[in-house]
Design a protein around this nucleic acid. Structure first.
Length: 734
RNA sequence: GGGCGAGUAGCUCAAUCGGAUAGAGCACCGGCCUUCUAAGCCGGGGGUUGUGGGUUCGAUUCCCGCCUCGCCUACCA
């Protein structure tokens, strides 16, 4: 509702500026006034135009207001302060818009987005840092879908990297297990893990410890030992990359089993994927070779003959002098060319190595190839196999030889990579490469959806039994590390949340059967966890602490869920439903239809404008009377319910409920789900305020009671909708 | 050395494109359960927005200097 009215006002003001001052303004700055007394929408446009027009802002504001005339949906405009124009909504009309049945949003055209998130190395259990990634990514997927995008969700799996190699070294060289023994171990873990609360028996937990042990094993022993172990590590990595050997088979077994655990963990949070592209296929299907040719042809990569990167294929980094120099770098390999610019004569020591002097490709190189595929620019495709079945769909995994019948992936128009901010440099390199290859449009629609890490407070680390150095104790937070086995595992945290909330649920819902109570505890636990990760904006580090994470009061998911439950209780006790009430409300509105459109939007002639200006204190009802003659009784009642000092909290609730699409748009434009989290909390707060001030079921005036119920129904609908987009369920009771 | 990000109430965080009186939660203090669930509500104390300049009608926001912290900057992945 608010978004629609803002757009209407924006268009009207721009038209006025064009008409009156011959000014073309791209868009009119609109903001929310600090107080409802100052209206619902405001613009400081007159302040901005004062210089250009060489006039006092207040005069400009008055002229604009006079020229605006009456605008449908608005009751009046006022000039206030130094020259603000404050717009006051037609509250009854606004409420009708909010209460109206929500039309299913039409698709916004061929918007095809690809969101990559989670992407945990499949060599250990997921931890809280991975939770932030997955929750952010999954929430953004929900937002994009709500806005009409077709979205493919990808979870990239680095199954042939050094991290998997490390845990393979652990199995083969520390534990000296055979392929058969590894297979037995995995089967055994899966069996034990299936029991209730059996996450700790999972292969991912097993690997968590083994990976940490292996990491320290590399650093132990004599210098000769260390050299030998380092060689074992590198040889193992190469065996994995190459494939077709027993070591690679061990890696395949482990990484696949761990991956399955990750999917199960994420499913506890309601997070699902469509595709799992793996590095092994990127290697074996020769994605890099195809990309390499294109990179050479376009001159993005050049061969370095001099300096520390001699013998490598490198590319210039974005933002460096060399990258901004005009012309391609393809010719600069000729060392004889010393003419012209400073950059071309010198070797770029800062360049990014893509192909090493031994001919192997770096991670960024493979990533460039992968992203060409994402945009449908590579000319090659994965094979696909079914891997994991969800309630409503199938998750596919890449394969060298896939199934014949599979959905189409790749060829997106926009991609979002949920990757922590530490990787902004390699991400920037990939974007730079795309741009250099002439894919400016794709580079433009490549979003590194970056976020800061989750770290532990020193206190939390000590609570968990880790020894914390004096140096670390002074820090605000300590980075988690899978390599050191330092962190909070995702399943442990979820279990702890459930264990914390379960007694509370058992007490308050003692009459409910046990499975219902378990379900509620799970919903609250997940709600608390997801909200905890989403309420903070992406670029601030989360210093994790159990005290905050296990809180169910204040600005938390459960607070919002509680508001939902209270509303549901009102309808339950009142013997009606939100749907019935809103239908009743809509019926009243339909009696208002039938007035000619020409009267709704009156032509702004000078006399009328002057009247509006002069009659600032004209009540909205009086205005309406001027347009429509007499108001229907329901309508004048609605006006009175929504105005006056004692009803400001109710209007505030309706107004907030009407902000959904505005907030959704803001979230998508800024890739920031935190705004929706904040919105949901504020709406819940407005409702709590309303709930305590107006007792609905004891209201004696039936018309007012219906209105109060409609207010609750609208709040419920919007709370449930916002929570759903945050991936938080709305319990029936709690 | 260079790049990116951050510094706001005791703590954790907000603050839209530069706008009106810088807001929430936690913690603390004081009230409110015979009324639709107290996982709640109301009230209170709390701020030189790291620091010094600049830009202008107006700066937490933009520019420059300085201080502090984190991350990145490997022929690791």
């Amino acid at each position: 509702m608010v978004l629609e009215l803002e757009k209407r006002l924006d268009a009207r003001v721009r038209a006025v500026l064009k008409e009156k001052y011959s000014l073309d303004v791209a868009n009119v700055p609109l903001e929310t006034p600090p107080d409802l007394h100052l209206g619902e929408i405001a613009t400081p446009i007159a302040l901005q135009l004062a210089r250009t027009l060489r006039k006092a802002p207040k005069i400009i504001a008055q002229e604009i207001v006079a020229a605006l005339g009456s605008v449908e949906g608005f009751a009046r405009f006022e000039v206030a302060g130094a020259g603000y124009i404050n717009a006051y909504l037609d509250r009854a009309a606004a409420a009708r818009m909010v209460a109206a049945p929500q039309s299913s949003r039409p698709s916004q055209g061929p918007l095809h987005a690809m969101v990559e998130h989670t992407s945990i190395n499949p060599n250990k259990a997921a931890h809280i840092g991975h939770l932030r990634n997955a929750i952010l990514g999954d929430t953004f997927v929900r937002l994009l879908r709500a806005a009409g995008y077709k979205v493919d969700v990808q979870n990239y799996i680095d199954n042939t990297g050094v991290q998997v190699a490390d845990v393979v070294v652990g199995f083969l060289h520390l534990e000296k297990k055979s392929l058969a023994e590894v297979r037995t171990l995995i089967a055994d873990c899966e069996k034990r893990c299936a029991g209730v609360g059996g996450h700790a028996a999972g292969i991912d937990y097993y690997c968590w410890d083994l990976y940490a042990r292996t990491s320290s094993w590399y650093a132990e022993g004599t210098t000769e030992d260390q050299a030998e172990r380092k060689k074992i590590r590198l040889d193992t990595l190469h065996l994995l990359e190459h494939g077709g050997n027993e070591t690679a088979e061990v890696a395949e077994l482990i990484s696949t089993a761990v991956l399955r655990r990750h999917l199960e963990t994420m499913l506890r949070l309601g997070i699902e994927y469509d595709l799992l592209p793996r590095e092994s296929e990127i290697l074996h299907l020769k994605f890099w070779e195809a990309a390499f040719e294109k990179l050479k042809q376009t001159g993005v990569l050049y061969f370095e003959n001099e300096g520390k990167n001699r013998g490598c294929w490198v590319m210039t980094r974005p933002g460096t002098l060399a990258s901004t120099a005009s012309g391609g770098r393809s010719g600069s390999t000729a060392s004889g060319d010393l003419s012209g610019s400073q950059a071309s004569g010198e070797t770029d020591e800062d360049a990014k190595v893509i192909v090493r002097s031994n001919g192997t490709v770096t991670y960024v190189g493979k990533d460039i190839a992968y992203h060409l595929w994402k945009f449908g620019l590579l000319g090659r495709d994965f094979g696909y196999k079914r891997f994991f079945t969800y309630r409503n769909h199938e998750c596919w995994i890449s394969a060298e030889h896939g199934e014949a019948d599979h959905p189409h992936f790749g060829g997106a128009t926009a991609i979002y990579n949920v990757i922590d901010s530490r990787q902004s440099d390699p991400q920037a390199n990939v974007i730079q490469a795309l741009r250099g290859m002439g894919h400016a449009d794709q580079a433009e629609h490549y979003t590194h959806f970056s976020y800061e890490m989750v770290a532990l407070t020193p206190r939390c680390a000590e609570e968990l039994g880790y020894s914390v150095s004096d140096e670390d104790k002074k820090k605000a937070y300590i980075e988690v590390s899978g390599r050191k086995g330092f962190g909070v595992k995702a399943d442990d945290l979820i279990d702890k949340l459930i264990a914390t909330v379960q007694p509370l649920v058992d007490e308050k819902q003692a009459a409910s059967p046990e499975p219902v109570r378990r379900q509620i505890a799970r919903q609250i636990a997940i709600g608390a966890l997801r909200y905890f990760m989403l309420k903070v904006t992406r670029n601030s580090v989360i210093a994790f602490d159990f005290k905050d994470a296990l809180s169910f009061e204040g600005e938390t998911g459960p607070y919002i869920q509680y508001a939902v439950v209270r509303i549901r209780n009102i309808f339950r006790k009142g013997g009606t439903t939100p749907e019935a009430i809103l239908a009743e409300f809509a019926k009243q509105a339909s009696r208002q239809v039938g007035k000619p459109a020409s009267q709704q939007e009156s032509v702004p002639d000078a006399a009328a404008a002057a009247e509006v200006l002069k009659g600032r204190d004209l009540s909205r009802a009086a205005n309406a009377e001027k347009n429509d003659g007499a108001l229907a009784p329901e309508e004048s009642a609605l006006v009175s319910y929504l105005s006056g000092e004692e009803n400001e909290d109710i209007w505030s609730l309706w107004l907030r409920a009407g902000r959904f699409s505005q907030v959704l748009e803001q979230c998508i434009n800024t890739s920031e789900p935190a705004y929706l989290a904040k919105h949901a909390f504020q709406l819940a707060q407005e409702f709590a305020n309303f709930y305590h001030r107006h007792h609905i079921l004891t209201e004696e005036d039936p018309a007012r009671k219906t209105f109060l119920l409609a207010s609750a129904a609208v709040a419920l609908r919007e709370l449930v909708r916002a929570l759903a987009l945050l991936g938080i369920e709305s319990p029936e009771a709690m």
